[in-house]
Amino acid sequence: MMESSKVIHVRRLVLVSILLATLVVGLGAYTRLTHAGLGCPDWPGCYGMLDVPQTQEQIAKAEQNFPGQVVEPEKAWNEMIHRYFAGSLGLLILAIAIISIRLRSQGIPIFLPLAILALVTFQAALGMWTVTLKLMPVVVMGHLLGGFSTLCLLFLLYLRLKPYRLPTSDWQVKKYSKFAVIGIVILFAQTALGGWTSSNYAALTCTELPICQAGWQEQLSFDNSFDLIPPERDSYEFGHLNHNERLTIHVMHRLGAIVTALYLGWLALVIFTRSQTRFFRTSAGVLGALLVVQVSLGISNIWFSLPLSIAVSHNLVAACLMMALIALTYSLKRKI
């Protein structure tokens, strides 16, 4: 009984960390989309403070200590609130790792909590480099992918700690586990394309559907569009690529979205129609519903010119879609 209660305690702690990680992903998207990534020019504090300069005296001192910087308290608060929650998540993950080591004799996974701790440590470094390297696109994209990966690994840990019973009669859908794994790879690649589009400020380069405005084929330019190490600049805020390069990035994200939607739509449909159990039909239904919402949000971003609420939701639903796919894959692989 004591062992069971301790496992339940760890599982609840992991659930709290999932909720916090989801909030951090949303706050990260909000910070990026409000152009507040450089709201604080230093790290981990803000203009040498633990909070944000607000009084006239504090602002004057901050601008004196950081020449060339204009203090914008609203953007600085966006960045610092994100850091506060991200730091809290890091401490919570550290606690989970320590508890997992102490309870390893009771069947608590060890490798996964330690891997998540290593990832969130690297994620903190990416957060620092985002500021010190002035929003270099590859760092911003890596920071986004790190946040998504942290959330998804926490969710996987939660699944491993949750003793739910799986149906044993659905033999015909077991073979689709490998296709679900491929789906995870495709969705991760599409998320990376989305991060690259956002970090290069290419989200509004194409303003028409389904691919781009007329003549986009002649404007494609792959020469520098996907160079991970860009030319050295004082800052990469608001982008450094020309129109054709941004258009190329956006078009590749659109094409990736079509491929992802078709593949995941097929996967959800085939499992839903061929499964004989309510468990897998529900799992496939959730995946399909989230896919429809995500595609709708993507279209809405273009149709309504990237409104903040829809753009942030696009990030959050992408994370939920990945977690739904992970849950389905995990269940398919452990079905029998």
Results as ranks from 00 to 15, higher is better:
S275N: 02
R274V: 07
A284G: 03
M128F: 02
F272N: 10
V14T: 12
F148R: 02
V131G: 04
L135R: 05
G68V: 12
C152P: 08
P230F: 10
L19S: 12
F155V: 09
S88G: 15
E208S: 09
C40K: 09
K134D: 08
P167A: 00
A118D: 06
L166Y: 00
N244P: 04
K333G: 13
V70T: 15
S199C: 08
M252Y: 11
V317K: 03
L161W: 04
Q106W: 04
S105Q: 11
I116G: 06
K134P: 01
I326W: 11
L33I: 04
Q217E: 07
G183D: 14
Y236I: 10
S88I: 07
S275L: 06
L119G: 02
I310M: 12
L145K: 00
S331K: 14
H240E: 15
H35A: 09
E218S: 09
L204Y: 05
P137H: 00
V52L: 11
L126W: 07
N78F: 15
L15P: 00
V293G: 06
C212R: 02
I99S: 03
I249N: 06
L306P: 07
D234I: 14
F272L: 05
S199A: 13
A95P: 02
I108R: 04
Q64F: 12
V270M: 03
Y164V: 13
R254N: 01
L38D: 14
S331H: 15
V70R: 15
I110Q: 08
R246W: 00
L38N: 14
